[in-house]
Each structure stands twice: as C-alpha cells, then as structure tokens.
C-alpha cells in the first residue's frame, strides 16, 4: 500500500517533468482494463552497466492472453555483450546486431503498453532497466502500476505462513505449482507468456479466494550442512 502511494506521488512528479507532451498518455488513467505482461532479456544483471537486448510484451484482457497482439523487439546494444549473459539467453552479438536501437524501439513500446499496469516475474527489474533509457529520453520513469507474479504467488501460498516456513519463489517452482507448462526459458516472449499465464491463474485464485496448499516437508539432512 505504501509503495502504491509512493508510486502515485512519483507519477505526479514525473508528469510535471515529462519532456515531451506527446507521451502524456502514459499518465492518463487506464481505460482499457487490460494489463501487459512484460519481459526483457539483458546483457547482464547490472542495471547501470548492462543493456536491454530484447523486449517482449503481451496484452492480457480479462482472462484472455492476447498472444495475437504482442510487442517484440530485438535491440542493438550500445555496449559490448557480456559473455556470461550470452550463455543465459543465447542471443549472440551477431543476432542482436539485426536489432534496432533502443531509441527507435521505445516510442513504439510506450504506445503499446500505454498506461496499462505491467505484469512480470520480478517485473521491477525489467522496469528499472527500461527506466534507465526512458529517463534519458523523456526525463521520467515508467509510471505504470506493477504486478509481480512472485508477489501474487507469495500471498496465495505463503501469506500467513508460520515463521520458519521454507519459501521458494523460483520461477520454475511457481510454474510447477500452478502447472503452467514451462517454455524454453530466457526468451523474452516465452518468459512474458509464462508470466501472463501465472498472472491469470493467480488473479483468479485471489478472486475465488483459493489458496495454494503448502507441503509440510520434513527438514532434509542437507539443509543443516551449510
């Protein structure tokens, strides 16, 4: 709740700083009722030093994931790619060279998401990554509301859990628990799609007030060895 108030005040502030009024729509109240599932692949995990190399976004309208209306872009990074990151998402420099620059991509992306709330797994990381460029272009941060599926999942599964409960918020664990079929990971589109499926299921569970059962597992011997 507090973060929501912070976000709104931050948005009001950003609205005043907005460098280009053509993007005022980002601050209009959302009237579509849709949300957007978002995922970025990056050249590394350091927000300041690394670059976004691909973005995928999928609209979700009610219970329908609009995979027929998606946004996908490969981005040519300014900096050289980190070898460890290439191993993760298997986009080589040669592949991303085909992409466009983030400056070209951003306007299209912003028009696609509008003022819809954003959904993702650890979505704040993706948003901060995008903000890095956005701030330079428009002098603002993304004002959109964010729903992190790991938070929704935590609330449905571990909310009110007794202290000492082993908490597992790994992407694979969530997918397994919700039996969402895993897709080859580290592809922005696939990750956004899986997050979207998690989102519709979790939101429906909230609506129906269904909780995810916790397995009470006996402590394993290995847990104490470290």
């Amino acid at each position: 709740m507090r973060s929501e108030i912070l976000r709104r005040s931050r948005a009001l502030f950003d609205r005043m700083l907005l460098a280009d009024n053509a993007y005022a729509f980002l601050f209009e109240p959302d009237e579509t009722g849709e949300v957007v599932s978002l995922d970025c692949e990056t050249s590394g995990f350091n927000i300041l030093a690394d670059d976004v190399i691909s973005i995928a976004a999928i609209k979700i309208r009610g219970n329908r994931i609009l995979t027929s209306e998606t946004f996908r872009a490969l981005i040519r990074p300014g900096a050289a790619m980190d070898v460890s990151a290439i191993k993760v998402h298997q986009l080589r420099e040669a592949d991303v060279k085909l992409g466009r620059t983030i400056r070209e991509v951003m306007p299209e992306f912003l028009r696609f998401i509008g003022s819809r709330p954003l959904v993702g797994y650890w979505v704040s990381f993706d948003v901060r990554m995008i903000n890095k460029y956005l701030f330079g272009m428009l002098n603002i941060n993304l004002p959109n509301r964010q729903y992190d599926v790991s938070e929704l999942y935590y609330e449905r599964k571990y909310g009110k859990a007794p202290p000492g409960t082993e908490i597992d918020l790994r992407y694979a664990a969530i997918a397994e628990d919700l039996s969402v079929p895993m897709l080859p990971q580290h592809d922005a589109f696939n990750d956004a799609l899986v997050a979207a499926q998690m989102y519709v299921i979790l939101r429906d569970m909230q609506k129906r007030n269904v909780r995810i059962p916790r397995q009470r597992t006996a402590p394993r011997a290995g847990d104490f060895s470290v």
Binding site: N63, R64, I65
Partner: peptide, 9 residues
C-alpha cells in the same frame, strides 16, 4: 500469429 490464450476458472 492469430492465436490467443484463454483462461477459464
């Protein structure tokens, strides 16, 4: 290109 995904409670 035309497929959507639907969720049904």
């Amino acid at each position: 290109a035309a497929i959507d995904i639907g969720y049904f409670p």
